[in-house]
Design a binder for these strands. Structure first.
Length: 466
DNA sequence: CCAGACGTTGTT
DNA sequence: GTCTGG
DNA sequence: CCAGACGTTGTT
DNA sequence: GTCTGG
């Protein structure tokens, strides 16, 4: 089985950050329309790795596809809607008409440096940037499909959807679903090379590694047009704690007060513990140790995808980069089980970064307060979309020449990539956060250590909460 | 992003 | 016109 | 039989 | 393409 390791991705990452990709001269398929971005939303092209067509071997292809699956049966004259299927519940991919046919032979993986998820707090939504502590790329399990529309004669459009699963116990306070993260080489190999009849359930589970960390970022990144390093800069949250509990349940109270938070980048207060604040804590969670990020053996044993000769760029294959191996190292996998039973209720303010885990979330549904539950829905918006950040892929030469432009607000529209040399150097990376702390207490009931299993519509194992 | 809705009561 | 869902 | 759907998240 | 609902 071919091996695809983190190494590859890690390598890309290093190249882009440190070396600047010049030396990766990979010829990507003709229309490799990719531009690095800190804010990727459905409809954008990003590189994915898939098995080579018809290959029963270990050949892999690196190719750009648009995020947001357009099933092959979509009418040729229909306007493709990438927002409809940008995610697929892992628990039900074998049942849903749009996905099940892709499971046998259209599995792929997507590598990103991190992604964003919004924590809801009443009417407000606070985005958080989630990434691996050591910045290795995150590898998501995905499914792709092809479609031809009426125009562009014969042009085949490749699109993909990212699988989601229930959240791990440590991530659950932020959101109840998370992308399926293939944390080690074995799981990547299983997903990419497993036989059509394989039981993929074992790899389509919540990633529980303690090395998955996060911190709040500006809500400005909620706009697809907002791109640039600012998207991944940590901000301090203003905490409003201290409200009597009664207010917690009162939406009214909460809202009014909190409303200020929206884009706030400022503030921060600190506080001490209090009874749980409504909002869970913002925090950066840390993990405990970094698992071994080490890689000990770097993999040498197995070739990584990059050096894997078989990875070709679909159209032209000539170029195969010859990179040597990199270390792979599996991500840390199992975390330690943490048990915090204590739900700490308090909030830790964010002082800087590492804080602590949050407390368990209040349960969402029911507590509604008194009247006023109905707020204007401001929360919709892009609630769902994953904003995948990937400057990681800057190694793509094209990309390199066309760095993302930092835009503000809706002022502009996406401009086609133009060579604008405007390098923002490697110095932009998001701050790392060291402090590991115990994760937050899970809130799912019943849950067992990891993601809670609940049932819901479908079957397979992991279910999510809520 | 952009097509489509633009409601309430009663509920999961 | 503006919000919402996809 | 055949037209129509085929998705996810999140909620009041 | 394939399943579902009417």
């Amino acid at each position: 089985m071919p091996t695809v390791g983190h190494g590859l991705l890690q390598h890309w990452s290093m190249i882009s950050f440190i070396f600047g990709l010049n030396f990766v001269d990979w010829n990507f398929k003709r229309n490799f329309r990719y531009r690095p971005s800190y804010n990727v939303s459905p409809g954008r092209d990003i590189p994915v790795i898939r098995r080579e067509d018809g290959s029963d071997g270990d050949s892999l292809v690196l190719q750009c596809m648009k995020w947001g699956l357009i099933p092959s049966f979509t009418k040729k004259d229909e306007k493709p809607d990438h927002y409809k299927m940008f995610n697929a519940r892992a628990e039900s991919i074998r049942e849903k008409a749009s996905f099940r046919r892709l499971v046998p032979n259209s599995r792929c993986v997507v590598a990103v440096e991190g992604f964003y998820e919004w924590k809801k707090d009443g009417s407000k939504k606070q985005p958080y940037y989630i990434h691996l502590e050591d910045d290795r790329p995150l590898v998501f399990a995905a499914l792709y499909d092809t479609w031809k529309n009426s125009e562009a004669a014969g042009e085949i459009h490749y699109t993909f959807t990212i699988l989601t699963t229930s959240s791990s116990s440590t991530f659950g306070w932020l959101h109840d679903r998370m992308p399926v993260i293939l944390g080690d080489k074995e799981s990547m190999d299983t997903w990419l090379f497993g036989s059509p009849s394989s039981k993929f359930e074992t790899v389509l589970k919540p990633y529980d590694g303690p090395d998955l960390v996060w911190y709040p970022v500006t809500s400005a990144m909620g706009k697809p047009s907002f791109d640039g390093p600012e998207c991944v800069m940590e901000i301090k949250l203003k905490t409003e704690e201290t409200k009597p509990i009664s207010q917690f349940f009162s939406k009214k109270g909460v809202n009014s007060e909190q409303s200020s938070n929206l884009g706030s980048m400022q503030g921060d207060l600190i506080k001490n513990n209090q009874p749980k604040s409504l909002k869970e804590e913002p925090q950066t969670q840390g993990s405990l140790d970094h698992p071994s990020v080490t890689d000990e053996g770097n993999d040498e044993s197995k070739p990584s995808i990059l050096d894997h000769p078989s990875v070709t760029d679909e159209g032209n294959d000539e170029s195969k980069p010859s990179i040597s191996t990199l270390t792979n190292e599996g991500a840390g996998k199992l975390p330690i089980k943490r048990d915090y039973e204590e739900l700490s209720a308090n909030a830790k303010p964010a002082c800087g970064k590492a804080e602590k885990p949050q407390t368990s979330p209040a349960r969402k549904k029911k507590n509604v307060g008194p009247a006023d539950n109905k707020q204007p829905t401001l929360l919709s918006f892009f609630g769902k979309r994953y904003h995948v950040h990937n400057h990681l892929l800057q190694h793509l030469k094209r990309a390199h020449q066309n760095p993302p432009v930092h835009r503000r607000a809706a002022t502009e529209i996406e401009s086609p990539a133009l060579p604008v040399p405007q390098p923002y150097g490697p110095a932009f990376l998001p701050p790392r956060q060291p402090p590991p702390l115990p994760p937050a207490p899970p809130y799912h009931r019943g849950g067992a250590g990891k993601g809670g299993y609940r049932n819901s519509t479908s079957l397979q194992h992991c279910k999510s909460s809520t």
